[in-house]
């Protein structure tokens, strides 16, 4: 009796210890970034795990730079456009791939999946040429184009899988009611696809928001830069000084919207990610 109790106690403790380790592992870097960003630069190299006083000077520094604010605006424009375009194309492609019977449908699906497997670096130079030809170098358009290319395969796959699971009779009922494919998609399917849309949209948003390589390569001036590049290019008073405080403040600033978005859509994401697995 007693040994059993002791055993279960040990198990419980081990379980919570494991969770604690995981939490620290996952959260500590972000926590430390937040703390660092709230210290004055003079206190930067004292290693503290708790904050004794709050100092917003780093935030004031970055927000007083017009280029950082501009970068946030650019990031929002790019990420929102990517999400909008990817969802629009994704839903219509998913309808075609999930609902219309045509020859070579599986091949198309495989090609779509294959495209998403190329590493970014492999297509960098080719994409650079494309963007130059299209006259999109150093503009938001170039970034929107390249991010959409990398986001679409995933979006199309998830939405196609989801669309396939909506009952066929639902679409036929809409056809009997006189709905065109476009009406069926917008009035019948879309309202049922919010979980999948929220999931894919959010992941597309995060990918576009955090992307660095393309953003660095395809932009030139600070008017067109997005946030990750802007942060990387924050420089100190001299070549030998890395302004950790402002960098951390900027990082925290751009991470917070993502955290908020994920929290808002959290329940939808879960139901969206499992929607393919179990029949609801």
């Amino acid at each position: 009796m007693n040994t059993r109790f002791a055993k279960s106690l040990v198990k419980r403790i081990a379980f919570w210890a494991l969770i604690a380790v995981l939490l620290v592992y996952a959260i500590f870097p972000f926590y430390y970034a937040v703390i660092t960003s709230l210290k004055p630069s003079s206190a930067l190299f004292q290693v503290d795990y708790w904050l004794s006083s709050v100092d917003f000077s780093n935030y004031i520094t970055i927000f007083s730079q017009g280029s950082f604010v501009q970068a946030i605006i650019n990031s929002v424009i790019v990420a929102v456009s990517v999400v909008a375009i990817a969802l629009l194309l994704g839903v219509t492609a998913a309808y075609a791939l999930g609902r219309v019977r045509f020859r070579g449908r599986t091949t198309v699906m495989m090609v779509v999946l294959g495209v998403s497997m190329f590493p970014q670096v492999a297509v960098l130079s080719g994409l650079f040429e494309v963007i130059r030809v299209l006259n999109l170098y150093n503009s938001a358009g170039g970034l929107i184009l390249s991010y959409t290319i990398f986001t679409l395969p995933f979006t199309v796959w998830v939405l196609t899988t989801f669309m396939r699971q909506l009952p066929m009779e639902l679409e036929e009922a809409a056809i009997m009611d006189g709905a065109t494919p476009w009406v069926t998609i917008t009035k019948v399917f879309l309202p049922l696809m919010w979980p999948a849309m929220a999931t894919t949209g959010l992941l597309a948003f995060i990918a576009a928001w955090n992307e660095f390589l393309f953003a660095l390569t395809f932009t030139l001036t600070s008017e067109e830069r997005t946030v990750p590049v802007a942060i990387a290019l924050i420089s100190g008073g001299s070549q030998h000084e890395l302004p950790w405080g402002p960098i951390m403040a900027a990082s925290v600033t751009v991470t917070v919207p993502l955290v908020i978005l994920v929290m808002i859509f959290q329940r939808r994401i879960v139901s969206g990610l499992t929607a393919g697995a179990v029949k609801g």
Binding site: E172, A173, M176
Partner: peptide
């Protein structure tokens, strides 16, 4: 096409639009 034939169909699974009320379901067509 079905809408021009003047036929109405009741499906085995009913296939009601889950996000619409009964009224909206009937008014959709």
């Amino acid at each position: 096409p079905p809408r021009e034939r003047g036929v109405g169909m009741v499906f085995q699974s009913y296939a009601l639009y889950p996000h619409m009320t009964v009224y909206e379901n009937m008014a959709f067509g």
